[in-house]
Design a protein around this nucleic acid. Structure first.
Length: 361
DNA sequence: CGCGTTTGACCTGCGC
DNA sequence: GCGCAGGTCAAACGCG
């Protein structure tokens, strides 16, 4: 799938548990760019691709890639943005676990995960006001640079259809407080979701949920369009002046809407259920079907996967990638392009753990 | 001819 | 130590 960056395939391997080969790509936009990605088709649904990004770009991203990077998962965002207002129903919540209650579903991230700066969801965004594919996007823009901030990994599933790669020219960013620092890098201008921090601090993941045509009635699609129509114009019309305030207001307005949480839960669940599949490398372990617990340890990892839903789980249907009401795989519309982490050359030039894996060119 | 992909071999980490 | 699986290398191959 075209995510805006230039990739060179350097390997392919059959992974155990998945008849579909996993392809390995390197970013070729810059000679020394350490970023790699893995692409694997979901064994359960051949139309789904799981893409894992590893590393951060040490070069400015092209606009198209920035678009990808700026579109980030609202679903994942809710995981964290909701933590501040969560009732704390999740285990260990009081000990620092990030917990989110999404329409009755509880997701949480353990303290050591969230604090390890491996999974930043400081900004989320909805986009696709003009795109034929309504999207919920998450901005995984990392907060402050951590020791491992230049090494990250993101996983998401994407619809295989190459023609679905269309992105909204603008993104409504439900920015966090950090967005107030907005000084968008040149390559990020125009994309509000890019929080404008030094790109060495940006770890962007995106979750783009859409469909080729608005012929289905999935709640998140309709919701997205509706909410976007309601909020995007106002937000974007002022983004050049008061992006943070506007975004924050929009964020509140939208995230406070119960229907948003419903849509988000559905979207997240769909992604979790379909995207990475059981074959995804590492991946977050949705233990119990309700809990998003990262499995990968350092270096930075990030992904979703879909272990078999537990029996009797009230939310099990959410984690079945295709519910009975879902169209067949061929018409599935969940679309989750990945984002593109990148860092400053100074950070990534020699410090990245991934560098040592690269040949001494 | 240059560039990207393919593919078998090799390397490395991990569990037993 | 051994075997397995994931990840990488690099020569061969194909295409424009």
């Amino acid at each position: 799938m075209n995510d805006g960056c230039q990739w060179r395939k350097y390997g392919q391997k059959i992974a155990k548990g998945n008849p579909c080969p996993r392809a390995y790509y390197r970013c070729t936009a810059a000679p020394s760019c350490p970023v790699r990605k893995q692409v694997q088709r979901c064994a359960e649904d051949m139309t789904i691709l799981t893409t894992t990004y590893e590393g951060t770009h040490n070069h400015p991203l092209p606009i198209s890639a920035t678009a990808m990077a700026s579109t980030t998962s609202a679903a994942a965002s809710m995981l964290l943005s909701g933590s501040s207002s969560s009732s704390g129903s999740g285990p260990s919540f009081n000990s620092g676990t990030i917990a989110v209650d999404l329409h009755g579903q509880n997701y949480y991230l353990p303290d050591n995960y969230s604090k390890s700066k491996q999974f930043y969801l400081s900004n989320s965004s909805l986009s696709s006001s003009s795109s034929p594919y309504p999207t919920i996007t998450l901005d995984l823009t990392s907060s402050p640079s951590g020791a491992s901030s230049h090494f990250s990994r993101f996983t998401a599933a994407s619809n295989y259809r190459p023609d679905i790669q269309k992105f909204a020219p603008t993104s409504l960013n439900f920015g966090s407080s950090e967005s107030s620092n907005a000084t968008a890098p040149p390559w990020g201008s125009g994309f509000l979701a890019t929080s404008g921090q030094s790109h060495s601090r940006n770890h962007l993941g995106s979750l783009n949920i859409g469909r080729p045509a608005m012929d289905q009635g999935n709640i998140y699609d309709q919701f997205c369009m509706q909410k976007i129509n309601d909020h995007l114009a106002a937000a974007t019309s002022q983004q050049s002046q008061l992006p943070a305030d506007t975004i924050a207001a929009a964020t509140k307005a939208i995230t406070a809407d119960p229907s948003f949480q419903s849509a988000l839960a559905a979207a997240l669940s769909s992604i979790i259920g379909t995207g990475a599949g059981g074959s995804a490398t590492g991946a977050a372990n949705l233990g119990g079907g309700n809990h998003l617990v990262p499995k990968w340890g350092p270096p930075v990892t990030n992904s979703f996967s879909s272990p078999p839903p537990p029996n009797g789980n009230p939310c099990a249907s959410y984690f079945n990638k295709t519910t009975s009401s879902q169209p067949p795989a061929s018409s599935k519309t969940i679309f989750v392009p990945l984002s593109l982490p990148f860092s400053t050359p100074s950070n990534a030039a020699s410090a990245s753990p991934a560098d040592k894996n690269d040949r001494a060119n």
